[in-house]
């Protein structure tokens, strides 16, 4: 049984992410913010379900498609939005932008724009946890496209060899940019690639937030108990294009229509009574989520820009190098 508080949290987050990304789509159309915008519409259940199984100080890595991960991990909505607007009060002081939303104090090691850069970094954090006999959970999020990259495989091999209980979370959303996942798979299931490393793996419905939560929670326990990495493949659908402005010509309408029947938000709504939420509860959560998102965008829009010279700051901890006496 999941406690009531967690259920409320899950519902709040899943709606917040959807509303947030819908606003992003809107401002992308209006061209009111600079830069590339990658939304995660269709991934909300994975973001929230995994994070529901984590503590705030557990470690994760994300990618350029990070808004949902950041929101679910507890990053401040105002700061995320302000960052996307390029403002000084943004979560990365305007230096990162949408592709690099990340807050170390919330357990985010980073949102990396280079495909498959994250898993090895998380491996290192997990190694640190092991060496220091600390027990924080370490999770790397990446896409179906990333599993073809050498960097992923090297991290997977080391994680297994070193008995590191980290969790690889592969969001199989059907596409890597314009390339359909199945077109480039050599195995029947994506997660079959872990066989080379004799790594445990599970497949879950990435549209069902409670299933994601359940599998993740069990896997974390199993990984720690057996001292082994676990690979989770959550299947979902990327409703947005690769980035906002993508024509999506390669995504057939009938496929999108079919996927809509399993939209994670739709499923969450349908399941709400099963989890003890009545119509009023649900409405209240939805309204709160909407309001918070609206507030964050209003906030961001009024925030100051960085000074040009702010660009020069924090390249190093110490530079030029001071000689310590």
């Amino acid at each position: 049984m999941i406690e009531k508080e967690k259920i409320n949290w899950i519902y709040k987050k899943i709606f917040t992410i959807r509303f947030f990304e819908e606003r992003i789509k809107k401002i992308a159309k209006e061209k009111t913010v600079p830069g590339y915008l990658h939304t995660c519409i269709g991934s909300e259940a994975i973001c929230v379900g995994v994070m529901a199984a984590l503590n705030q100080d557990d470690w994760i890595s994300s990618t350029y498609r990070n808004h949902g991960h950041a929101i679910a991990k507890g990053c401040e909505l105002n700061e995320i939005t302000s960052e996307i607007y390029g403002r000084k009060t943004g979560i990365c002081k305007g230096r990162g932008g949408s592709m690099h939303i990340s807050d170390f104090s919330k357990g985010m090691l980073g949102s990396f724009g280079i495909v498959a850069a994250g898993p090895a970094v998380v491996l290192g954090a997990a190694l640190q946890e092991k060496i220091n006999k600390s027990n924080k959970t370490c999770v790397s999020f990446f896409g179906d496209g990333a599993i073809h990259n050498g960097a992923f495989h090297e991290a997977a091999g080391l994680a297994k060899l070193w008995n590191i209980p980290m969790i690889f979370v592969c969001e199989n959303n059907g596409y890597a940019e314009a390339t359909a996942t199945d077109w480039h798979l050599n195995t029947k299931e994506l997660s079959d690639i872990t066989k080379a490393y004799d790594m445990l793996s599970y497949i879950g419905d990435g549209n069902n937030v409670f299933e994601v939560y359940d599998i993740t929670k069990k896997s974390i326990n199993e990984a720690k108990q057996k001292n082994t990495p676990i690979f989770l493949e959550f299947k979902n659908y990327r409703f947005s294009g690769q980035y906002e402005g993508d024509t999506q010509l390669y995504q057939p309408q009938e496929e999108i229509d079919k996927a809509k029947q399993n939209d994670p938000i739709k499923l969450a709504k349908e399941n709400s009574s099963k989890y003890g939420l009545n119509k009023n509860d649900l409405e209240k959560i939805i309204n709160e989520a909407k309001e918070e998102v609206d507030k964050a965008f209003d906030f961001a829009d009024t925030q100051p820009w960085p000074q040009p010279e702010d660009a020069l700051e924090e390249v190093y901890v110490n530079y030029p190098v001071e000689i310590k006496t």
Binding site: P34, G86, R95, W305, P306, D310, A311, V315
Partner: peptide, 16 residues
């Protein structure tokens, strides 16, 4: 450009 990575925000990137 200065000896920094490329910053995102327009005022900083334009300065870069």
């Amino acid at each position: 450009a200065p000896h920094t990575p490329v910053p995102f925000s327009p005022p900083m990137e334009d300065f870069y």
